[in-house]
Simulated scan of single mutants.
Amino acid sequence: MTPTGNWSYPTAIKFGAGRIKELPAACAAAGIKRPLLVTDKGLANLPITQATLDILDAAGLGRAMFSDVDPNPNEKNLAAGLAVYKAGGHDGVVAFGGGSGLDLGKMVAFMSGQTRPVWDFEDIGDWYTRADPAGIAPIVAVPTTAGTGSEVGRASVITNSETHVKKIIFHPKVLPSVVICDPELTVGMPKMITAGTGMDAFAHCLEAYCSPFYHPMSQGIALEGLRLVNEYLPRAYADGNDLEARAHMMSAAAMGAVAFQKGLGAIHALSHPIGAVYNTHHGTTNAVVMNAVLDFNRPAIEDRLGRAAAYLGIKGGFTGFCDRVWELRSTLAIPAKLSEMGVGNNRIDELTAMALEDPSVGGNPVAMTAENTRALFEAVI
């Protein structure tokens, strides 16, 4: 049976098949009368997006849409979105899509009433206090993939188009006031995207679970998220119409994003620069580097992953867990090396420097240095 529920952790979540119909009520609850739906280029003309605009239109909320969003959204996309938002006299955002549409939609709402450049709000210290909270428009988030979990996040990843560095922009009020998780919206996802986004959710749960910081709530959420992906991602991949599997993957994606408040690690520290320089799919990149990072972190995480393996019903402790990751990657047709995704070995020094500056570095269980990070890149490329 497909699960359903109403949750208020970490925000109000309307979860269940067909619940996209509740979007007008969600806008009303958030105080939005003139929403701008922000999504990416690939989703703009798809039936799920047009049907969602029909639902808004029928409720008298118009059908305004901005979709000039790149796979790795940047400050140029943001400026274009803000121009459309202000010209249309909008009072809130419906962030709709995968990570890129959700992240950019959240930033359009956040920046709609700010006077400083977006880079002034990077997730460093208390920089978020520079923002005027009254200038942040309300957000309703509607995920159409089961991966990033950006719908329950208080930050967005925006790529600087000049330096190709991914920056995390944070503010507590960037957390959407209402989230609609309707697994029916994910049914049409291509196999490759189902695999990549699903492994992104797995990476979030895995790195949060292994992070050395203390956050027992996130720890528990990460562990159950790992179980859901392990069990249901192969099913969602094999049959895109398996609504039960799609629903559990949607939960796992949100759980991963809630859990990584506890920290991320080397998987993300490697994949962020690769994605910024080579424009690779983020979740797929995470999957390709995953086993090398597990081996790298083994001295610090062997016992902990042994416990996770037992909970997931995997025999063989740490080794069994790593074998299962390889098995998942094989089932999902994930490339064995980054070279298969167009990543060359001629920019390893640059990638290493970028990785060591990535915020995820601090959450890795084993300290990352120029030497061992470079070796990791060589191993995965």
Rank of each mutant, 00 (worst) to 15 (best):
T4V: 14
T4G: 10
G5N: 12
Y9F: 15
F15V: 01
F15E: 02
K21D: 12
K21T: 13
L23E: 08
A25P: 00
A28V: 10
A30F: 05
A30C: 13
I32R: 05
P35T: 11
L36S: 11
L37D: 02
L37E: 02
V38E: 07
V38M: 06
K41L: 12
L43I: 14
L43H: 08
L43G: 10
T49M: 11
Q50S: 13
D54G: 12
I55Y: 05
I55N: 10
I55F: 05
D57C: 13
A58D: 15
A59R: 13
R63E: 13
M65L: 15
F66G: 13
S67W: 02
V69R: 09
P71Y: 10
K76G: 01
A79V: 02
G81R: 09
Y85N: 04
A87S: 14
G88S: 08
G89D: 03
V93W: 01
V93D: 02
A95K: 07
A95F: 02
F96G: 03
G98A: 05
G98W: 05
S100R: 03
S100D: 03
G105R: 04
K106P: 03
R116V: 05
P117M: 06
W127P: 00
W127Q: 13
T129C: 03
A131T: 09
P133A: 13
P133M: 03
V142W: 03
V142K: 04
P143F: 02
T145S: 13
T145L: 07
A146Q: 05
V152G: 01
R154T: 12
A155L: 10
S156H: 07
S156V: 06
S161H: 14
T163M: 09
T163F: 09
K167P: 00
I169S: 06
I169P: 06
V178P: 05
C181K: 07
C181V: 11
G188Q: 08
A195S: 15
G196T: 03
T197D: 09
T197Y: 12
H204L: 12
H204W: 11
C205I: 06
P212H: 07
H215W: 10
M217G: 04
S218T: 01
R227I: 04
Y232P: 06
R235Y: 07
R235Q: 15
A236L: 09
A238N: 13
A245R: 13
R246E: 03
M249V: 13
M250R: 08
S251T: 11
S251G: 05
A253C: 07
Q261M: 12
G265N: 03
S271K: 04
H272P: 07
P273D: 07
Y278W: 09
N279I: 00
N279D: 15
T280G: 06
H281Y: 04
T284G: 00
N286Q: 06
A292I: 06
A292T: 11
V293N: 01
P299M: 08
E302N: 00
E302D: 01
D303T: 14
D303W: 02
A309F: 02
A310M: 04
F321E: 09
C322T: 14
V325G: 10
E327D: 15
R329W: 00
P335N: 10
A336Y: 07
R347P: 00
I348T: 14
A355V: 11
A355S: 15
D358I: 09
S360H: 01
V361F: 00
G362L: 12
A367R: 14
T369Y: 08
T369P: 09
T369H: 09
A370D: 13
N372D: 07
R374C: 10
A375F: 02
F377P: 06
A379R: 15
A379K: 15
V380F: 08
